[in-house]
Nucleic acid binder design. Sequence first.
DNA 1: CTGAAAGCGCTTACAG
DNA 2: CTGAAAGCGCTTACAG
Lengths: 342, 342
Amino acid sequence: MTKPHNSKSRASGRVTLAAVAARAGVATMTASRALSQPELVSPMLRARVELAVEELGYVPNRAARALASARSNVIVVLVPSLSNAVFTAVLAGIQDALDPYGYQILIGNTRYSDAEEEKLLNVYMQSNPDGILLSGLSHSKGVQKMLDTSRVPVVSMMDLSANVGQLSVGFSQVQAGYTMARYLIDKGYKRIGFMGAQLDERTIKRAEGYRKAMEEAGLADPKLELMVADPSTIALGAELVGRMLAVTPDCDAIFCCNDDLAHGAIYQCQRRGISVPEQLAICGFNDLPASAWMNPSVTTIGTPRYRVGFEAASLLRGVIRGEQPPATQIDLGFTLMARESA
Amino acid sequence: MTKPHNSKSRASGRVTLAAVAARAGVATMTASRALSQPELVSPMLRARVELAVEELGYVPNRAARALASARSNVIVVLVPSLSNAVFTAVLAGIQDALDPYGYQILIGNTRYSDAEEEKLLNVYMQSNPDGILLSGLSHSKGVQKMLDTSRVPVVSMMDLSANVGQLSVGFSQVQAGYTMARYLIDKGYKRIGFMGAQLDERTIKRAEGYRKAMEEAGLADPKLELMVADPSTIALGAELVGRMLAVTPDCDAIFCCNDDLAHGAIYQCQRRGISVPEQLAICGFNDLPASAWMNPSVTTIGTPRYRVGFEAASLLRGVIRGEQPPATQIDLGFTLMARESA
DNA sequence: CTGAAAGCGCTTACAG
DNA sequence: CTGAAAGCGCTTACAG
């Protein structure tokens, strides 16, 4: 009855599929099939296997399955931040899209660093992922090489690629930046500043869109651009608005690269008795929940971050299954939310 | 030179350790040792193996390693939310504590559901985790049973357990709730309401602490408690403050179970022309970044969420390594942040 | 310090 | 519909 326990045994003590099969009186592979492709097994044997699973409390060993089948059912997701609400929404979309299909999602936080991204990917490749979801379009050479040689399907999130071979789901960051600047220009503001932090890919592109609009309107002035590499926080927004006004006191509007900065700038203005938008218009980007509720409410760009995650994951799943992607880039657009602050 | 490719081969095409060994002219297990315990291999062979790894672009197969070694190097983390800044901070602490040690972190989002937690754990147990980090102290019977039978080390986060056998890292939620209520009472407020949402374990305990303080002061009144199961959001805080004032117009202070609710309540008061704290004091819980910057700034309880994650992960790592835990519960405390709103 | 062999717990062709 | 055998890519005692 009991298992032979010679000193050479390396058995883990866990209940194995073989034990389940023995209990059910079938071959191991019949037990395997009963669990993974039940329709191929006769109802009677299937029931016996299921009973044995129940009685023994069998838990499949994922490592063994991955090794034998050469399919890990792992999907790697790399995001630049876990504290940024934008990316937690992206993750929620990914989970909702993938959860029904038994994938194991490996979430890596690159902390906005290309080097960190490469390190993480290097480790995660050991799990032999079936697919990869990346944030942004540009990556280090090491990352490119790993992706090329592994030939694992990849979908890029948040922006749209010009490269036909690169699957991407998001919206045009440049165009969104342009749209917001254009809105301020059309409202009659002349000295429109841009406040950017982190200086990640997306901030750079939003600034690019802003610059284009300003140049078209003949309003461009390098002094109006305030870019710092520090992480975006409310505190930084509060600080930067002070620096902006010190350098260009005639500034009448500020386009913040995201809502955190905008919120901080507005709180700071309130403390200094600068009325928003009368004396200084302020707008943000992303439409975080607080933007609709603050007083003044914040003009910003609504972004489809949850859907970016959901659609990117769905696209990836299709590719993994060998389907032809309906499009190599999926544009989910963005929405200008005109509110009180600008 | 080339590998024989008979039709029966199931080789994945990936570079294996055996290939590395062949290239280096050593046995497979010497190659294995050169990578995992380099100090046991002579410098010369080690160098040859390293060169072969480089030349071949060898990536270890984690599934094979896990299967052969019976150690997965996986740590499972279950949190109730990925959009709540509290838990993203906890995750950051966990990652910082574990990253240097090569663990693979599997993050599960239970969405505040016991059933979902059980489902996730069930799936994650297939990965044969070396340790588990759970949020909260109370779990479903199914979860308890899985943990008991698997005998995998577990550390609970966010609260302190009364059960000696249960490792926990956090602070007393009941006491923190009591402290905040006591603060309001000492300030002279008489009709102090409590607004709770989500009704997770922590909210319930904070309410318990509030109730205890109110009873001690002879101020308790069930009408002052407004509890709803909806997720905590700014919008909900804005709505609930209206409901609270409709039911108890003489309410002079509100203790919100978290900052999101408090922010929403304050924004709503601003819109309705109710001055905070003069007409209505409002305080929150957790000290999110905006609380220090809003106008009025928000009185709240500062919680050591990053440290909870860091210390819980460190404790877990110790236990996995077979160390005797220094204590079965680690109290990280909390801080009352007295500001303008109450 | 180095290696031949066995084994971890599954799944995959293949055959019946 | 069912099964005996081989194999996935590593690591672990054990021996030298």
